[in-house]
Measured scan of single mutants.
Amino acid sequence: DDWEIHFNNITIRLHGVSEEQIEELKELIKNGAHEEELRKWAEEVNR
């Protein structure tokens, strides 16, 4: 699925990401992940 997530003036566009991966991302954000951590997560997902 395609997703677009907005938070802290950042837009993250995701393509072909599962519901499970979105839940992981929500947890990262909820736990106060920094932009660098989110980038690493996105790189892993996009492999």
Rank of each mutant, 00 (worst) to 15 (best):
S18R: 10
L25Y: 07
K40Y: 05
E24Q: 11
I5P: 03
L14C: 10
I12L: 08
A42I: 15
I29M: 08
I12V: 05
D1E: 13
N46E: 14
A33I: 09
A33L: 05
E44V: 03
E4Q: 07
W41K: 01
R39G: 02
K40H: 09
E35R: 05
N31M: 10
T11F: 13
R47M: 15
N31H: 08
G16T: 11
E4C: 07
N8H: 10
H15A: 06
Q21M: 09
E27Y: 10
I12M: 05
L25M: 06
T11E: 06
K26V: 09
E19R: 15
I12E: 03
N8V: 09
T11A: 06
E24C: 02
E44L: 03
L25R: 00
H34E: 13
I10N: 03
G16W: 09
I12W: 01
H34L: 10
Q21G: 02
E23F: 12
I12C: 04
E23T: 11
E37C: 03
N31G: 07
A42N: 02
E35H: 07
G32I: 01
D1V: 15
K26S: 06
I22T: 04
E20L: 10
E20N: 09
Q21C: 04
K26T: 05
E24T: 06
F7L: 09
H6N: 10
E4T: 13
E27D: 11
V17W: 08
L38Q: 00
N46L: 15
L14P: 03
E24R: 10
A33Y: 05
L25E: 00
W3H: 05
T11P: 04
E35P: 10
E27N: 12
E43H: 05
D1N: 13
W3G: 02
D2Y: 15
L14M: 06
V45F: 13
L38A: 01
H34C: 09
Q21W: 06
E37R: 03
V17I: 12
F7E: 01
F7K: 01
W41G: 00
E36T: 09
L25D: 00
A33S: 07
L38F: 06
E19T: 11
D1C: 15
V45P: 01
K40D: 04
E35G: 05
L28G: 00
S18E: 02
N9R: 06
N31Y: 06
A33T: 05
V17T: 02
I10P: 01
R47W: 14
I12T: 02
E37Q: 10
V45C: 03
E23Q: 12
E20M: 12
E23R: 13
D2E: 14
W3Q: 04
G16I: 07
I22R: 06
I29L: 11
L28V: 02
R47G: 15
V45H: 10
H6M: 12
E27V: 09
E24K: 11
E27C: 13
R47P: 14
K26W: 14
N46K: 09
I5M: 08
E19I: 13
R13Y: 10
G16N: 14
D2V: 14
R47T: 15
W3T: 05
V45K: 04
W41E: 00
E36L: 07
L14F: 07
E23L: 12
H15P: 07
E36D: 13
I5H: 08
V17H: 02
R13E: 09
W41A: 02
N8R: 08
